Simulated assay, not measured.
Amino acid sequence: MNYTKVIGIGWDVGGWMGTNHGIAVCSWDTASKKVSWHGTPFETGLPDSGILSLDKLLSGSEIDENLLADNDTLTVIGIDAPLGFPAEFINLLNGQPSQIVKPEKEIFNPLAYRAADQEIYERFRKKPLSASFDRIGNNATLAIAHARRWERENNFTVYPTKIEEADMNRIIIEVYPALVKSRRDGDAAEWMIKHMPGNVFPGTDAYDACICALYAIALGSEGQLLPKLKRPPEHLKDLVMQEGWIYYFDLENEGIS
């Protein structure tokens, strides 16, 4: 990716009926190499139309879709919600025979957890909520519906994709803010908190939206500002194409604990 400016939009997803959607917008450019926050991160519910438009995400940020159309600008939306369901769960719903038996641990049940969820558990000993077994399915269906709409109407592409290396300048990724916090309502890690705005507080959806936005910036800054994000390993790529991937900071290769 060779862009002079990266716009990061963070969305901490609430449910269809909730008012706890956190939204934040920031940018980074190759000249200043600093994060600029645009507008005040805020919390909201879905509008009466039932859909969060791209304009709504950018509202109050003095950034509009004209800037997003600039070929030198990469725009990334970081979403804290599952953007896919387990492949085995989808197969089950589609009537395919299942050979699943009781797993040793719940995390290894392929009807409940994706390869990405299991990767997070193996690396961080944190277990993401299951889109098929837990209440996060509410948030997941909302996030997936929006991502597909933005793909169709605003030319975004949900990563990962088989053509991930192509020259795309509007990207959607799934992220997991909890991985950079010691506890649910705690501060972000020190290496990240220095880039956070001063008008948000830990334990709020707006705060987590800012973390999502920084994940988004990290995809485009490619290690120049924040640690690089971990792409799917080669042996999981085919499965990840079906289920989605949680982009996380590859801290081991950065020497950060």
Rank of each mutant, 00 (worst) to 15 (best):
S98M: 12
D55G: 10
Y248A: 13
N138Y: 10
S130R: 08
A189P: 11
E62D: 15
Y207H: 12
E65L: 14
D72Q: 04
E65K: 15
N109G: 06
V101H: 15
P177M: 11
T141I: 13
D208S: 11
D12Y: 09
D80I: 01
C210F: 09
K230M: 14
L226F: 01
Y207Q: 03
D205S: 09
F201D: 15
S132R: 11
H38K: 01
G203C: 04
H195F: 00
S132N: 11
N91E: 14
R152Y: 13
Q224G: 11
Y247R: 07
D48G: 14
I77H: 03
L74D: 02
D80M: 04
E234P: 04
I79L: 12
Y247L: 03
L229Y: 04
V180H: 05
R184N: 07
I171T: 15
N169D: 08
H235Y: 08
M192C: 03
A116E: 07
K228T: 10
G203D: 05
N109W: 05
F42P: 12
A209Y: 00
V240A: 04
L58K: 02
G22P: 08
V175N: 01
A140R: 08
L46T: 03
D185I: 13
P197R: 09
G255L: 11
P232G: 07
A189S: 11
Q224L: 14
L225M: 00
G14V: 02
L74P: 04
L67C: 09
R114S: 11
M17E: 15
D238E: 13
T73I: 08
Y176P: 10
E43H: 05
G255Q: 12
F89L: 08
D29T: 03
G15Y: 02
T44W: 01
K194L: 00
P103Y: 11
D185P: 06
N91I: 08
M17W: 09
T157Y: 15
E254V: 14
K127I: 14
P128C: 01
C210L: 08
L67K: 12
I246H: 07
A116Q: 03
T204G: 00
Q242I: 06
F85M: 07
Y113H: 12
L54C: 05
F156W: 12
K56V: 13
P47W: 10
S221W: 02
S130W: 03
I100T: 12
V200E: 05
P177I: 09
D185W: 12
